[in-house]
Amino acid sequence: MTDSTTASATSMPLIQARNVNKVFPNGCHALKDVSLDVQRGEVVVIIGPSGSGKSTFLRTLNQLETITSGGIFVDQVDLTDKRTDINVVREEVGMVFQAFNLFPHKTALGNVMLAPMKVLKQSKAEAQKTAESLLERVGLADRMDNYPSRLSGGQQQRVAIARSLAMKPKVLLFDEPTSALDPEMVGEVLDVMKELAKEGMTMVVVTHEMGFAQEVADRVVFMEDGELALEETPERFFHSDHPRLQRFLGQVL
């Protein structure tokens, strides 16, 4: 980690969620007292049935979803504090979406360069250099000048990962990054994510890819009905006799 803060600060969890509750305006209680710590360099995988609140929880971590009560701290910055500039926090919390959400009016390179130029005020040359090396890293050196509409799903998602990395985030959030992909493209995206994990990137991943969870995760979290039902290392997690987890795994595996 390239952190210049004190030793006690670096030993603190990068993300701390404390008793997070989320009630939607329609009365749906999506998150019930969810608490989770994510250490620096850790990969946490969240699994659970649809509607369990896992995506909602992930989206609260960069305040795309506001919370009703509780506290969320990213690098000790309280996201619920009104004085916190959420835009500054979001520079450090990257997010990769299920639907990629690439900017269709920009090329792959333009997608990666946009935020560094407009938010970090990097020069065009500087942003382009970073963007090119990032796209190379996700294996798209030959597709830099393509518009998203000319890229396959897997390629788009890799551009989206490069776009997030361009902001040099402290943590990357993945919201079902492979769910919208054709099966043959899942591997290329997972490979990039594994590579990132190996390089020490802190990641929180909502996914249905049990193989990825088993192989890469430091911890696996099971959510159901807005509650954090189980939190274990992968070995213990996949051999747990938790009844609801058993039922869920029985359905997806």
Binding site: N62, L64, N87, V88, R90, E91, V93, G94, M95, F97, A99, N101, L102, F103, P104, H105, L114, A115, K118, V119, A160, R163, S164, M167
Partner: peptide, 30 residues
């Protein structure tokens, strides 16, 4: 313009005005 475009722009640290100017409006105008 899909909501995801605004979310992607905001999650990259752009504020509302920047997201509108660089991401939403160029697509909307077209």
């Amino acid at each position: 313009v899909p909501v995801g475009q605004m979310e992607a722009a905001r999650s990259l640290g752009m504020n509302y005005v920047e997201a509108m100017a660089y991401v939403i409006m160029p697509q909307a105008i077209k």
